[in-house]
Amino acid sequence: MPLLALNNVEVVYDKVFLAIKGVSLAVEEGDMVALLGANGAGKSTTLKTVSGLLGPERGAVTRGEVSFDGRDVLPMSAAKRVESGIVHVLEGRRIFEHLTPDENLTAAFPLQGSRAQLQELKAQVYDYFPRLHERRKSQAGYLSGGEQQMLAIARALMTRPRLIMLDEPSLGLAPLLVQEIFEIITRINREEKVSVLLVEQNAAAALETVRHAYLLENGHVVMSGDAATLKQNPDIQEFYLGGHGQVDYHNVKHYRRRKRWLA
Rank of each mutant, 00 (worst) to 15 (best):
L163Y: 12
R135I: 02
I95R: 00
E134C: 08
E57V: 15
S144M: 14
F96R: 08
Q179P: 08
L6F: 04
S195N: 04
V87P: 00
A204R: 15
R260N: 07
A140K: 02
R136Q: 01
G40Y: 07
G172S: 08
V12Q: 07
E103I: 06
P56M: 11
D235K: 06
G52K: 08
N39K: 12
S44R: 05
R160Y: 08
I153L: 10
V196L: 12
A140M: 09
E83R: 15
E28T: 03
I188H: 10
R94H: 14
A78L: 01
G219I: 00
S224L: 15
G113R: 01
S138H: 09
L105S: 03
G55K: 15
R115F: 13
L207T: 09
A107R: 10
Y126E: 06
S144L: 14
H250P: 07
Q119H: 09
L105F: 14
A174D: 11
A116F: 12
L216K: 00
R155H: 15
E191N: 11
N104R: 02
D69T: 11
V11F: 04
E97K: 13
V61N: 02
G37A: 10
V12K: 06
E180S: 09
E208W: 10
K259L: 14
T49K: 12
L35D: 05
Q149I: 00
R58G: 05
G92P: 05
V196S: 03
G242P: 01
L132E: 01
Q237N: 02
R71K: 15
F239Q: 07
A26P: 10
I185V: 15
A60E: 15
H244Y: 11
S44N: 09
L143R: 07
A228L: 05
N189A: 11
K21S: 09
L151E: 00
R115V: 09
S195W: 03
Q232Y: 06
I95M: 04
A228I: 01
A60N: 13
L173V: 02
L25H: 05
R58F: 03
A26S: 14
K43R: 14
S24L: 08
N8Q: 13
S77C: 04
L90P: 05
P169N: 13
P101T: 05
R115K: 13
N39T: 15
L121S: 14
R258K: 09
E217F: 02
V61G: 02
T229S: 11
R94V: 08
P161R: 03
Q237W: 01
I86A: 03
G64M: 12
E191D: 13
L53H: 11
E91Y: 02
N202C: 06
E28H: 15
G146W: 04
I20G: 00
P56A: 10
E120K: 07
D102A: 14
Q139T: 11
L166G: 03
E120C: 04
I236G: 03
K80V: 05
V89Y: 00
T209C: 10
V87G: 00
A152I: 01
V252E: 06
L90F: 09
Q237L: 05
V66F: 07
G92N: 11
K259M: 15
K80Y: 08
G245P: 03
V199F: 02
N189Y: 14
T209H: 14
A263M: 06
V194D: 04
V33W: 02
I184M: 12
V194A: 05
P175K: 11
A154C: 07
V210R: 07
G225A: 01
G30D: 04
T106G: 06
E168Q: 07
